[in-house]
Nucleic acid binder design. Structure first.
Lengths: 180, 180
DNA sequence: GACGTTATCTAACGATGCTAGCCTCTGTCC
DNA sequence: GGACAGAGGCTAGCATCGTTAGATAACGTC
């Protein structure tokens, strides 16, 4: 085996995180066990605990990186309603398990509190930029609608053939004038 | 112990289901273990398997009853947008763990397929009645928005003080004229 | 009163997250 | 050049989970 090459905590954390993401995307989060990840990386379970405090901390890390990726995906397109909506839904569809970790699994991350991690704040800002208003209520509603579309679609709750029609309708409704 | 009183499978299923719902609402789904439920009911674990094929089937049953309750809650109010939106969000807020089982946990239930269980169809119809359109796309978008609002709010992702403002804005946006 | 049926309990299996303790290797200092 | 300290990894194990097989005891019937 590896004699004693390079611990390098950061790169190890990255390896574990990538392995977790890969297993989750292919076989679901229930398959993401510490033993499976250890086997995938060619080490034993206890080694993983030097990178993450536990399974929950690992999932939190995957989710946090997911928020960073989502923010990047949103910022990569024009700060207009339709492009950002499409980017959001594309991200959720492309990485359903990561999206699940971000929103549908119990996390230890704070959200609307003052100590909200930066990637979360950044992702929300990217939405707010495309749907500006005074206090962010509009962005929250937009976010909710997108999240609902993404989640229900991914869960097979909506008719798959109508994905585009739903996006078009949602776009039209959400960009109506706010005539108080 | 009970000598051989009354098996009565239906009532036992009901007992187990209620216990599961109660434990889930108080301590979360991770606390809903077969041993915990058995202890709660004064029986042993294997007895539960005479009522449900396994833990997953039990969760499915809780979710299915939840859809029935949601449909009833929606039908109990006027078939108008705002009352039904409020009823939906109230249900999700009142039974967060049941709602979680219905939408955020892996279920074995079919959804948009032809064999969709009746309670699901009924709940969706109650939304469609309040947001009628030709092919149901509008109702799906409304449903998505409500689901997003309910989920993100329950998960602490949104500012708690603005719940009412979000509902008002969502209502205004979703009831705009559909000028094609 | 004896019997078969049936519901129940006891006990166990495999798998999980996580941890304690030993062992091996690396790098350093004399 | 060689011994030592320390860091990192591995083996083995604990408690808990879902689930199941086999033994046990109570009921209704004849």
């Amino acid at each position: 085996m590896s004699p004693r090459p390079a611990p390098d905590l950061d790169s190890r954390r990255d390896q574990v995180l990538r392995a977790a993401r890969a297993v989750a995307e292919s076989d679901g989060w229930s398959a993401v066990t510490m033993r499976r990840l250890a086997g995938e990386l060619g080490v034993t379970q206890p080694v993983l605990y030097s990178a993450f405090a536990g399974r929950q901390a690992l999932i939190d890390a995957v989710a946090l990186r997911g928020f960073g990726d989502l923010a990047a995906a949103l910022e990569a397109v024009d700060a207009a309603p339709l492009p950002r909506m499409r980017a959001y839904l594309d991200f959720a569809a492309a990485h359903p398990r990561v999206y699940e970790a971000m929103f549908s699994m119990p996390l230890g991350l704070p959200f609307a509190a003052d100590d909200t991690p930066e990637p979360l704040r950044q992702a929300f800002s990217a939405l707010h930029d495309a749907f500006p208003d005074a206090d962010g209520t509009r962005a929250e509603v937009v976010w909710s609608a997108l999240h609902g579309l993404a989640t229900l679609d991914a869960g097979g709750r909506l008719r798959p053939a109508h994905t585009q029609a739903r996006l078009d309708l949602a776009h039209r409704l959400l960009t109506e004038q706010e005539t108080s």
